[in-house]
Amino acid sequence: MTEERKHTISLLVDNESGVLSRVAGLFSGRGFNIESLCVAETLDPALSRITLVTRGNERIIEQINKQLNKLINIRKVIDLTETEFVEREMALIKVRAKEEHRAEILRIVDIFRCKIVDVSPAYYTVEATGSDEKIAAILNLLKQIGIKEIARTGAIALAREAKK
């Protein structure tokens, strides 16, 4: 039995109602887990891309790939983990912005190349994108200042093109 690993799987699916439920139902029905899931239309309005992150040993991942392939509405299954790929997550973080902390928040935003997208007397809302490690690092720093609430996306990912 091989070790459990994180896998990022990219699916091209028919852009129809019920497709997401088929994917989610497959995971819950067969006891696989989904760490995160992102869905949006592609350039072709008939297709959507689902990026999902899951975890499992080789045998489970093989089953997940095969079972996904078996769903009629799924056009293509790509396990990006086997290739070079770029992966991004995004988080909106509402952080308490007391007078004495504002400079510190701006510094963190600068270091991590985030943006401040909303400002109120008491709160700044920070937009952060990057890998899940980077988001975790930002959260860790901002937590010490005081986070009111956050909203995070799952990962989205694409395979890298050949460099030559």
Partner: peptide, 14 residues
């Protein structure tokens, strides 16, 4: 019924 039978059909349609 499409929701109910999703996991026990090869495929289903509304």
């Amino acid at each position: 019924i499409v929701g109910i039978t999703r996991p026990c059909t090869k495929h289903n349609y509304l």
